[in-house]
Amino acid sequence: MTYISLSFSDLALAALLILVNAGLSLALGLGLERRLFVAASRMVVQLLLVGLVLEALFRTVNPWATALVAAAMVGFAGREATARQEHRLAGWWSQGLGTGAMLMAAGIVTLFALTTQLRPHPWYDPRYAIPLLGMVLGNTMNGISLGLNALTGDLGHNRAAVEARLALGADRWQAMRFLAGKSLRMATTPIVNSMAATGLVSLPGMMTGQILGGVAPFEAVKYQILVMFLIAGGTGIGAVAAIGGGVLRLTDHRHRLRLDRLG
């Protein structure tokens, strides 16, 4: 395996592209230059910090340190998923539901890959566990936040429809079915689309990274296929858990619609 190592001056050269963008923004009066600089700086700082943490983590191969980093990742993903909601569940639930569903889905899928396909020694080797979790988590988060957004956003408009079903004697699952189904489709559409388009329209970032890192293309492709299956599985499990939990929380044991539980 050979790869071309980058120096900091290489990166500085690439950063000129941001300056070009900022110049365009100024010239066209778009007012984007400030946000562009802040975003670019955040990207650099966050990634450098992550690089340092991962260097230390990979050197020690400590199960507790790995678990701590994984927990922090799930926590950040949960916050991000919650922040994207337009209509949130009231109180602790807004954060708890998305984070819980994500922890479960990403956890199951990552452990599955670590114990059956990849089997590193030890199984929790952060070199495998953390990047895998990161990829599954990012996509699961997307699916969960899209799904929950569809569920809670549409509920206000569909209140009469749901309550009509309830008044006609449907239980809460039957009454919410048409909404839950739509939310699940919203949650899983991106991953289905991206599986269909992968390789033709886009070269996945992970695969590209491996190829740039010197891995033979066919090996990188096999890894990418594995990752796509994991992401699809994680998104499906996470979306079902989050939307199922959402339906339970937005109704009660007497099969009443509880919009008062939306914040």
Binding site: N158, A164, R254, H255
Partner: peptide, 16 residues
Amino acid sequence: APRWRRMVRYFAAEPG
């Protein structure tokens, strides 16, 4: 509750 509502039926002013 679903059985109760099959016996005691509410007709909303603006049905859904």
